[in-house]
Design a protein around this nucleic acid. Structure first.
Length: 453
RNA sequence: GGCGCCUUGGUCAAGUGGUUAAGACUCCAGCCUCUCACGCUGGCUACAUGGGUUCGAAUCCCAUAGGCGUCACCA
């Protein structure tokens, strides 16, 4: 066994939806295979006709691609063990099921819909299997029901097909969720009936979600987004999601590093870093990791990633790379951007309360007093000199002349051009983004509004 | 309910008989500062409970409790 090439597989059913828990299972199977210079196989388990969703296979492949998980073999990639879609392997299962019947390890059963084949379980004794995370697990055979191997429609059940395929496809390590622990003895019995080598099992703890009332349960719709696609739609970078998910139930040895590229993960991954207790999906941590990725991007990279999530006017579009430099450190997910920059395109409603700021010693009267000469000063700056650096220089000089604190001048100015308490960037950045004409108009308008109170 | 798995701060987690029980996220305080953010400092909070074993237990054993899973012609 130790000399055999490691081969793992990800075997989802075609539902057109990639649950975070499933993605993590695929990730670990991939990381383990690659860390051992082995193969990672994608196999579609579509033996339940009722559950089939159109284009699901393509969806799964696209999702894995986005997550940078690359199958060595699969429906699209092909391989020596094709086909990799179970519905196309129907005859194979039938042959093996009949072999079991001939050896009396299984039997035919007449049902409402036709004839099915059922596995015969021993009534006494117990079955033990080894799991890398849990050690030996033993279950009494009397707990095992005679299960259906081949359904009356000719399709195999999961419990049968997975054993046949894992053996035929030479899978060495089965990485899947803990929900399969109690059915594993049935699989082991099957391997024994056929005289096949039993693969190594690794049953992963589930990914949990936390509800608003604080209760914890398996991650589901009630916890908000639960799929990789949902998270991408919200504007989390695929790399950040994968990185976060990798650490949900696994952690590297001898390091506190948390930000990993896929290559680094492959390099450092090992089975003994896997944890056997459930992990709660935590948006706070995901947000932090997401922002770490944003901060590491260049302005251009961030702008490119963010473009798909925003609607800009001509002016802002031209300055978006610069805007991105301001947004990078302030965003946790891309779908937050639009709201935070909307004020640059449409002036929010006037609110005199915003001009009152105790810390900077400003109120309405003071604002009028400052804004009036400030407007005159700014009007003298030409459109071509309307740059962040120059604006900063002029405003600083203006402030020095007034003898006021910097904040006392900056506060009303910023409010006058934004009508927002919090903005991404300060006065000079916003003046630049707005451009000379719009900036001046906004200040005039705000000044009028203040005087007409 | 039977069977199985799990149990270190609010969350992710180091730790494999002797530690002041790491680190990260969140939160709080301070510094920086043209708002916010970034950055920097510092701080709060944990071994589920009860028995053993041992000179010594978060680490080993046994109970109890709680959580989760499974008992389909679903996967």
């Amino acid at each position: 066994m130790s000399n055999k090439k490691v081969r793992t597989r990800f075997a989802p059913s075609p539902t057109g939806y990639m649950h975070i828990g499933n993605l993590r299972t695929a990730l670990y199977a991939y990381l383990f295979a690659k860390s051992q210079h082995g193969d990672f196989i994608l196999r579609i388990e579509d033996t339940d006709r009722a559950r089939y969703v159109a284009d699901a296979v393509e969806f799964i492949e696209n999702t894995l691609k986005l997550a940078k998980i690359k199958p060595d073999e699969g429906p699209h990639d092909g391989g020596n063990f094709a086909p990799y879609i179970q519905s196309e392997r129907k005859e194979i299962y039938k042959k093996y099921a009949e072999e079991l019947v001939s050896k009396d390890f299984a039997y035919y059963e007449e049902g409402e819909n036709g004839v099915a084949i059922r596995q015969r379980m021993p009534k006494t004794g117990e079955t033990t299997f080894y799991d890398v995370l849990h050690g030996n697990i033993t279950i009494a055979n009397e707990e095992l029901e005679d299960q259906i191997l081949l359904k009356s429609d000719g399709m195999p059940t999961y419990n049968f097909a997975n054993v046949i395929d894992d053996h035929l496809m030479e899978i060495t390590h089965i990485i899947r969720g803990t929900e399969f622990i109690t059915s594993t003895p049935k699989h082991v019995l099957l391997y024994q009936y056929f005289g096949w080598e039993i693969p190594t099992f690794i049953h992963l703890a589930p990914v949990m979600g936390k509800a608003e009332d604080g209760s914890v349960s398996k991650l589901s719709k009630r916890h908000g987004a639960t799929s990789f696609g949902d998270l991408v739609d919200m504007g989390y970078l695929p790399e950040a999601i994968t990185n976060y998910v990798a650490l949900l139930g696994w952690n590297p040895k001898n390091t506190n590093q948390e930000i990993f590229s896929m290559d680094e993960l492959i390099d450092i991954f090992s089975l003994d870093g896997l944890s056997k207790s459930p992990a709660v999906f935590d948006y706070d941590k995901l947000n932090w990791m997401s922002s770490e990725y944003f901060k590491k991007m260049s302005d251009e990279e961030f702008a490119e990633a963010a473009r798909k999530y925003v609607k800009l006017d001509e002016n802002l579009s031209a300055k978006f790379v610069y805007l991105s430099s301001l947004l990078k450190t302030r965003v946790t997910k891309l779908n937050e951007i639009q709201e935070s920059i909307e004020f640059l395109m449409t002036m929010p409603d006037f609110d005199s309360e915003l001009f009152i700021n105790k810390r900077n010693k400003v109120n309405v009267e003071k604002s009028i007093e400052i804004l009036t000469p400030a407007l005159e000063m700014l009007e003298k700056i030409s459109a071509e000199d309307w740059t962040v650096d120059n604006l900063n220089e002029k405003i600083s000089a203006f402030t020095a002349n007034t003898g006021l604190k910097v904040g006392t001048v900056m506060w009303p100015l910023r409010i006058a051009i934004s009508n927002k308490k919090v903005t991404p960037g300060g006065v000079t950045e916003i003046l630049y983004l707005l451009g000379r004409e719009i900036s001046l108009n906004r200040i005039k308008q705000s000044l009028d509004n203040l005087k007409n109170l």
